[in-house]
Design a protein around this nucleic acid. Structure first.
Lengths: 140, 140
DNA sequence: CTGCATGCAAACCGTTTGCATCCCC
DNA sequence: GGGGATGCAAACGGTTTGCATGCAG
């Protein structure tokens, strides 16, 4: 659970470009979306490499793996605590810019005998562009 | 606890038993775990039936489908808003008995142009039984 | 030379779906 | 008899992994 940002992992071109591309966007792309972005610059990169490196960077605290609802995991280059909202229609995930509630962790620790490490809040709703279109069952 | 009467879905033996078994436990079993529980009473039930009926009951508000972190979805017979904690080691999910913060939804609505429907808080940590054993990477 | 990193493809796992059959209205 | 529900098995989609090759130290 201890995150070590001062890691010894080599900065290969693949890793560097994955990190660059992820940092470029404010969305929270899936592994496949990142694969597509990176492939424009490294056409021969494999999907496995993308997965392996995203996982590794998440372990090292360079990026965040969002374990939110929906079928796919999403990644975030912004590692400080912040909350998200997911569209029930299209699966898109945005940041929610409200102040965090760190005291929740203490409340949770008081309410249980677990060792509490943190929390995440996921709002759900319908994004702007989806609320323009007709209502559909969730895709993601 | 209260079962919605205003649903038109037939109460087949399979559905009844799935609901009964899910209501029996305070854990938040995965579809496969529910399948195992139900199969003791209905040995010929298919996994597809379990999935279909869990999905249907979730749509009708009889149960909750927990879209939390980890690889598998989990189900909960308690449908009122409450929060959860997930063990990074074994994947187990427990309830966290703190009071909910419904005003978060309003704060989120103010902070975005989405249509906000609700929220869920997932704490992460290490459960009692896992903290006794040695530290391992997350399984789930 | 040695070991980690990569590309590729196959395996994996949870979930969904098509279909023939069954059962209740 | 007709429409939904079931069991079964195959398909699916996202992710992981085994392996041969490549490349940096």
């Amino acid at each position: 659970m201890d995150i070590k940002p001062d890691t010894d992992m080599r900065l290969t071109p693949q890793r560097q470009i994955i990190l660059e591309e992820l940092s470029k966007v404010k969305t929270h792309p899936t592994a496949n979306e990142i694969y597509d972005m990176v492939r424009r610059r490294l056409p021969r990169i494999g999907l496995g490499t993308v997965y392996r490196n995203l996982e590794l960077m998440a372990e090292n605290g360079l990026i965040l793996k969002l374990e939110v609802g929906g079928t796919q995991k999403r990644f975030d280059a912004t590692t400080d605590l912040h909350y998200h909202i997911r569209c029930l229609h299209c699966g898109r995930v945005d940041d929610i810019d409200i102040k965090t509630v760190p005291q929740l962790d203490q409340a949770a620790a008081d309410a249980t005998d677990w060792y509490v490490l943190g929390h995440h809040i996921e709002f759900v709703g319908i994004c702007k562009s989806c609320s323009s279109s007709s209502k559909q069952p969730a895709i993601n």
